[in-house]
């Protein structure tokens, strides 16, 4: 089983997010980055599938500026066999169709049985890259996977629907599946894994070799959402806060 896992590097959930001077994205140097959380689950799922099937290869793939090699190495340290890095030199790329075309052009020749992505990136939040790649490569696709089962040349996927509903889908391989968080328990890299990762190959694809598509959508401006709701802001030490909360519960909202 030959599996590609697409791993994106995104701002961590506790990172500051100041805007850049042109207000077209966050100011990258001030941001702390991490592996996109659902991609971490996708990576774990790929490693588990490979272990279950008993043979094959897991390839960690990422596109972005130089810094994103870090998440590829993290993937290698956890057990991916090799990496592919698609160079991207301009400002953060957010056009999913051209990103998907880049990925598709690079992944095509490798004939993967399975391409796993996270269901959504925590930064651009397009929620579509894996499905686009699947369609571009003529693969079957499924999204929001919360369980997977390989059966010969097919994969059975339990999909999450809204409000606590689920559904099973059976797809022929090769397939591109987007993974929902929570379907497994992602491992931590072992010391041996971290040492071993240094020897694993990361193939670098220069931007000129994969960026052929025209951009179809562009972020013109980012801004902090405004609200009209009246909110009482409570600051101060823990004692003051606790006292005010108690008062709110008793007198304002009257739930005590």
């Amino acid at each position: 089983m030959k599996i590609a896992v697409l791993i994106k590097q995104v701002p961590g959930s506790e990172s500051p997010l100041p805007l850049n001077s042109t207000q077209t994205w966050v100011d990258e140097p001030q941001v702390t980055y991490t592996m996109n959380p659902p991609d971490n689950y996708a990576l774990e799922e790929a490693l588990l599938i490979k272990e279950n099937v008993g043979d094959g290869e897991v390839v960690a793939v990422s596109l972005g500026p130089e810094r994103v090699k870090k998440v590829i190495r993290e993937g290698l340290a956890k057990g991916a066999d090799r990496g592919i890095y698609l160079e991207e030199n301009s400002q953060i790329e957010t056009d999913p169709l051209s990103i998907a075309r880049s990925f598709a052009s690079v992944l095509q020749d490798e004939n993967f049985d399975l391409i796993l992505t996270g269901l959504q990136s925590d930064d651009a939040g397009m929620g579509q890259t894996g499905v686009l790649i699947g369609e571009l490569l003529g693969l079957s696709t499924a999204t929001l996977a919360v369980q997977t089962n390989i059966q010969d040349e097919q994969i059975r996927v339990k999909r999450e629907l809204e409000s606590g509903w689920f559904q099973w889908v059976k797809l022929p391989l090769p397939a591109s599946i987007s993974i929902q968080s929570g379907l497994n328990t992602p491992r931590y890299p072992s010391l041996k894994g971290i040492m071993g990762a240094k020897k694993k190959e990361i193939r670098v694809i220069p931007a000129s070799e994969h960026q052929t598509a025209e951009k179809t959508q562009t972020i013109k401006k980012v801004f902090v959402p405004q609200t009209t709701k009246k909110t009482e802001v409570i600051e101060g030490n823990a004692d003051t806060a606790a006292a005010r909360i108690l008062e709110i519960l008793k007198s304002d909202v009257k739930v005590l």
Partner: peptide
């Protein structure tokens, strides 16, 4: 192009949620 998660739209410019709802982006 598919612009998802749109919260307002006018004249070819669409506002979508980004960064886990912490920021909004105007997309065209």
């Amino acid at each position: 192009p598919f612009i998802p998660d749109v919260i307002s739209a006018e004249d070819g410019s669409y506002v979508k949620l980004v960064l886990n709802s912490k920021l909004n982006a105007t997309v065209s």
